[in-house]
Amino acid sequence: MIPWPVHYYRPDQWADALDLYQQLTRAGRSPRYYLGGTEIITMARTDSQPVSDLIDLKGIPEIMAHGQDGDWLYWGAGLSLARVAELDAWPVLTATADRVADHTSREQITLGGNCLSIMPYKEALVPFMLPDRVMIEVATSQGLMTVPLHDRFDGSWHLAPGEFLLSLRVLKEEARSLVFRSYKMTRLDWVDYPLVTVVVVRDPDGQIRAGFSGWGPHPLVSSQVNALLSDRSATPAARAAAAIAAMPTPALDDLHASRAYRTFVTQHTLALIIRELEE
C-alpha cells in the first residue's frame, strides 16, 4: 500500500502519457510512471518519497509489444520478466531475466522496471550492454525516438523528465551469433540480490565481452576489461585476474558481501566462464 492518497492514470497512447506528465509537473505535483508497480510499492513502504500521481504505462500498445521488426528483435518495456523468459527470443536475455527475484515476482516485475530500477542491479539490462548494436525506443517531447542504448545509458540513464522507455531492440543476427554464459552469484540463497551477475558473450571472432551487475552501483561493461578477457595468450585464470585488476571501479562493500569477497567471487566466476566458453 502507498500510505497516502494518490491519483491514478492509465493513458492509452504514449503521447498522452507525456502530456500528462508535463501537466502534472507544471501543477507542482510529483508524478511517477510505473509498469509492474513492485518497486514503487516497496519504496513507498519505507521512504516517504513523494509520489502524488501514478501514470500506468501498461495501456500503451507499443510498451506491451514484442517480436521482430525487420532485422531487429524487440521487447516492450512493459513485458514481465516471466513473459520475456517465456518468449525466449534471445537466450542470454532469458537466462539473465530468469534469475531476477523469484518466479512469482517475475510475473510482476517488468523488463522496463528492472532496467530502470533504482536498485544497483538492473540485471535484465546487462545482456543489452554487450552487442554492438542495441537500440532503444524512447518517448520524448520530440516524438518517438529510436536511439542507441549507449546514447541514453552509460551506467546511468539519461532520460529527460517525462521521457520514458518504450522498448529495447537488438539485431537478430548479432544476438543469435553470440555464445554466452550468465551466472548470478549470491551470498548463499538462490533468491537474493546478486553479489554479482556476470554475463559473458563470445562473438564469432572469439572476442569476449563481459557485463557485470552487482559489482558496482550500476551495471557495467568495460572495453579494457573485455580486451583483457579476450587475450587468448593468457590462461583463463590469468585473464580473469587481469580483468578484475582493470575494473573501472572497486567492488561494492555491503551487507551481502565484503568488497574482497565480492572480488574473489567475480574473479572465480569469470575464470570459470572463460573456460566454459572456450572449451
Partner: peptide, 16 residues
C-alpha cells in the same frame, strides 16, 4: 492467481 498466474497481491495495485 491473476488470470491463472501467481502474483504477490501485496506488490500490485488493486486497479491493475
Amino acid at each position: 492467481l491473476l488470470n491463472q498466474k501467481p502474483v504477490k497481491s501485496c506488490m500490485m495495485f488493486a486497479v491493475d
